[in-house]
Design a protein around this nucleic acid. Structure first.
Length: 216
DNA sequence: CACCAGGCAAGTA
DNA sequence: TACTTGCATGGT
């Protein structure tokens, strides 16, 4: 799967974010949201010089909501970003490098205890900000595995994660690229109007006949 | 107009 | 545990 996608698309060089903080903020903002809209929100923060722990900590939540408005669910996400910043302040004394160097299992538990950070967001932060070798499962991963008859439609997050992690070397760079390539594939070939006939994964495994043209 | 996007949490039974 | 619903902008 990895080589088919890499040969087709080339390296994706994820995550699209210049700093660890930007990666973490982007991970929250992209929840059920098109990345284009996230970029607008992130650009608002950059333009206001607000993409720092101190600025985000100081900024009132209502003002933050206005900045991230283009990413949708803006009241919710402003609160979630605040929860994340508070966590960094309280647990790591506002020192991001300390957070990033923490024991992965401890950090994951901590992130999951934050209101608004679930498994995908936590694992995205672990993999893309902290370079921890953990596989990120998203809706595209789900859909693609299901279409190739390699997972049940209602398969749980942890099942799919284990499928990858138990069958691949524990390599953060590999997990990084593969997840990025899966998202790229999902976007371009595995939406509702699928293009399975020209998908780079066509040769990877069986495609359920049911899904050759459309989903559900 | 309908449909969807790199989720998550809270409520219900 | 297994479903359902609210959250919301912007692109196709």
């Amino acid at each position: 799967m990895f080589h088919l996608l890499l040969d087709h698309f080339g390296p994706q060089h994820w995550w699209p974010g210049e700093t660890e903080l930007e990666i973490m903020v982007g991970a929250v903002l992209t929840q059920n949201t098109n990345w284009k809209n996230v970029e607008k929100a992130v650009n608002n923060l950059k333009r206001g010089d607000l993409l720092s722990l101190h600025a985000l900590h100081t900024l009132p939540v209502a003002a933050l909501a206005e900045e991230v408005r283009p990413s949708g669910f803006f009241n919710l996400k402003a609160k979630r970003l605040k929860n994340l910043i508070d966590f960094i302040m309280v647990r790591y004394g506002g020192d991001l490098s300390r957070l990033l160097k923490d024991e992965p299992a401890t950090l994951r538990e901590g992130l999951l205890s934050i209101r608004g950070i679930g498994r995908e967001t936590a694992d995205s932060i672990l993999l893309y900000a902290a370079c921890v070798p953990i596989f990120v499962v998203d809706a595209y991963t789900h859909r693609i595995l299901h279409r190739h008859a390699m997972a049940e439609e209602q398969a749980a997050y942890d099942e799919l994660q284990a499928l990858f992690m138990e069958n691949l070397p524990e390599d953060a760079q590999l997990f990084n690229e593969l997840h990025a390539l899966i998202v790229r594939t999902g976007k371009e070939y595995c939406r509702r109007t699928a293009r399975c006939d020209i998908c780079p994964l066509k040769e990877w495994g069986p495609i359920a006949p049911y899904f050759q043209t459309t989903d559900r």
